[in-house]
Amino acid sequence: MKPVKSSSLPVFDPRSIPVLGIDSHLAGVAPDRLTPQALRDRFRHPPMWVPEHSVETSFSGRTPALAAVLLPLVMRDELTLLLTERSTNLSTHSGQIAFPGGRTDDTDQDAVDTALREAHEEIALPRHHVEVLGTLPTYVTGSAFIITPVVALVRPGFQLHPNPGEVADVFEVPLRFLMNPAHHRRHETEFNGVLRQWLSMPYSDPMSQTAGSEITERYIWGATAGMLRNFYRFLSA
């Protein structure tokens, strides 16, 4: 992670913070719940559940802003989650792994419209390939974004064109990996006298390897990992 440009944001390398624990004692989501039809059914008939992560410790003096992100689940032989690596020139969360998404515009009809618009602007994901399933509870970041996560299935066959001003890379991670708490690591550190806690889900991406190169570690952490943990709780409830 490269330092963000705003002096009000924490500047540290999350990889350098020790792992306090790994949640391998928790069961992963059963494979039969990680299919397109099972997800459709889960959102049509949601269970009683409580999100585990909702509000991060604030480290920004900015006015809160509404935003939405898309959790695009690509319908391959097994579901994968499409993620982005944010450009290092962005003012907030630069260089981090993120969902496609961003701030709500006045012209957006709702959070779904925001998520779909932003996904098209950032990576050119076509709307006609996307089947929206529903939303998860809002997640408030320390940088004062009130985010609505929008979960959707994505039909393969699309061609992505990342906007270089916003997105440095696009990749996919198997959903079963992310929905297995054995890959969920807990961290904490102090910033400006306040204790911050978060999860990380490092993923060694085999598709990143080319001849003579090493496999890239996709370091998923912070708000992205927090929303994925909530998705895990929703699917395992």
Results as ranks from 00 to 15, higher is better:
residue 127 R to L: 03
residue 138 T to K: 04
residue 126 P to R: 05
residue 123 I to H: 13
residue 157 G to R: 05
residue 169 D to I: 12
residue 133 L to Q: 01
residue 171 F to C: 10
residue 125 L to Q: 03
residue 129 H to Q: 12
residue 124 A to K: 09
residue 136 L to G: 08
residue 158 F to G: 00
residue 166 E to S: 15
residue 169 D to V: 04
residue 148 T to R: 08
residue 157 G to E: 02
residue 158 F to W: 07
residue 164 P to Q: 12
residue 160 L to A: 03
residue 161 H to V: 05
residue 127 R to W: 01
residue 163 N to T: 09
residue 138 T to V: 11
residue 136 L to T: 09
residue 112 V to S: 12
residue 128 H to F: 10
residue 125 L to K: 03
residue 171 F to E: 14
residue 164 P to A: 07
residue 154 V to D: 00
residue 112 V to R: 15
residue 137 P to T: 11
residue 130 V to C: 01
residue 112 V to H: 13
residue 112 V to G: 12
residue 151 V to Q: 07
residue 136 L to H: 09
residue 171 F to W: 13
residue 133 L to Y: 00
residue 160 L to E: 02
residue 118 E to Q: 15
residue 169 D to H: 13
residue 115 A to I: 03
residue 121 E to A: 15
residue 130 V to N: 02
residue 164 P to I: 10
residue 159 Q to E: 10
residue 129 H to C: 06
residue 165 G to W: 10
residue 140 V to A: 10
residue 152 A to G: 05
residue 129 H to I: 01
residue 172 E to K: 03
residue 122 E to F: 08
residue 140 V to F: 08
residue 146 I to P: 02
residue 161 H to T: 13
residue 138 T to I: 06
residue 121 E to N: 15
residue 121 E to P: 08
residue 157 G to M: 03
residue 141 T to Q: 08
residue 153 L to E: 01
residue 169 D to T: 12
residue 167 V to Q: 06
residue 147 I to P: 10
residue 151 V to A: 10
residue 138 T to R: 07
residue 147 I to G: 06
residue 146 I to F: 05
residue 163 N to F: 06
residue 144 A to L: 11
residue 126 P to Y: 01
residue 168 A to P: 08
residue 146 I to L: 08
residue 152 A to W: 02
residue 125 L to T: 01
residue 152 A to L: 03
residue 166 E to T: 11
residue 141 T to D: 07
residue 135 T to E: 05
residue 170 V to P: 03
residue 171 F to T: 14
residue 125 L to M: 08
residue 111 A to I: 12
residue 149 P to T: 09
residue 170 V to G: 03
residue 147 I to Q: 09
residue 150 V to E: 00
residue 133 L to M: 06
residue 128 H to P: 05
residue 125 L to S: 01
residue 119 A to Q: 03
residue 116 L to A: 12
residue 130 V to M: 00
residue 148 T to H: 03
residue 132 V to K: 04
residue 134 G to C: 11
residue 137 P to E: 11
residue 163 N to V: 07
residue 154 V to C: 00
residue 132 V to G: 06
residue 157 G to S: 05
residue 165 G to E: 14
residue 115 A to V: 02
residue 155 R to K: 11
residue 152 A to K: 00
residue 153 L to V: 04
residue 169 D to R: 13
residue 146 I to H: 12
residue 112 V to D: 05
residue 168 A to Y: 11
residue 147 I to M: 09
residue 167 V to H: 06
residue 156 P to S: 02
residue 120 H to E: 14
residue 111 A to S: 15
residue 169 D to Y: 12
residue 170 V to E: 05
residue 168 A to W: 11
residue 134 G to T: 07
residue 155 R to L: 00
residue 144 A to V: 11
residue 138 T to Q: 11
residue 172 E to Q: 15
residue 122 E to M: 12
residue 130 V to K: 01
residue 116 L to T: 11
residue 162 P to Q: 05
residue 164 P to M: 13
residue 171 F to H: 12
